[in-house]
Amino acid sequence: MRVSVDSVGLMAPGMAGWDAARSVLRGEQTLDRQQLPTFRPNLLPPNERRRTTALIKLALQTAEDALQHNRYSMSELASVFASSEGDGEVVDRICQSLTLPERPVSPTHFHNSVHNAPAGYWAIASHSRQFSTSLAAGAYTFTAGLIEAATAATLQQQPVLLLCYDSALPPALAGRGYVDTSFATALLLSGQANAAALGSLRLELKAGSTRLPALSKELEQLREHNPAAASLPLLVALAKEEGTDLSLPYHDELAVQIGIDV
């Protein structure tokens, strides 16, 4: 299967936006992990934005970053939202409210607690009624999201926005899940070759385990703490504008081979 990467979005510690992040990914600038992006997605009107959470803002701002130079209208885009944990902050608030005598679960927290809450806000903001799915695959969430999005883009012949994102879990759950730092990336994929694309990906599944591709020490630390950062070897290749072959684990018995052509 072959798909074009039309554009990329990135929001991570020390990498606020794809344009700014490329020099870090190319190794020309050191990663400053203390520098956290501030989230103010403009896609949502202020009254909707107030009802959202850090995770929803992270996802939407990453979408915005990917879409700033794209050729499609947002309402045409299908989408795949891939997140390992969903919204830990909302779960924490709901579970804390269960310990109070009247157990006052907030209705807003409850509707924000669904795994597809960021996708719901995205649809409202983009006016897209197209296909959208929200998925999880633990440590392999990026790989699963990439295959899902590429498959939909190819078979349904429409551009698909893949968002893969997770926020650090709240203190009570820290260290118990797969995520301890925030990281989000977006890839706008289409099934058709496109001269303006950043590159194209040849995808294959292969039985058996695979080792993680090498990364610089500072990027490796991000990858260890967020499944969305499994995308980093691919993002490095796209930032360097270098064709290469990568293998990413899908789980311990399956791997995705990615041939990157730029």
Binding site: S83, H115, N116, L135, A136, A137, H251, L254
Partner: peptide, 27 residues
């Protein structure tokens, strides 16, 4: 237990499957 992938991780091991595996969570 609670992580969104839990049920697919569990079922994949229970059924001894090794193909693509994921959870779809859209309420």
């Amino acid at each position: 237990t609670h992580n969104t992938y839990s049920s697919a991780d569990f079922t994949r091991r229970y059924l001894e499957l090794a193909g693509p595996a994921q959870v779809i969570s859209t309420a």
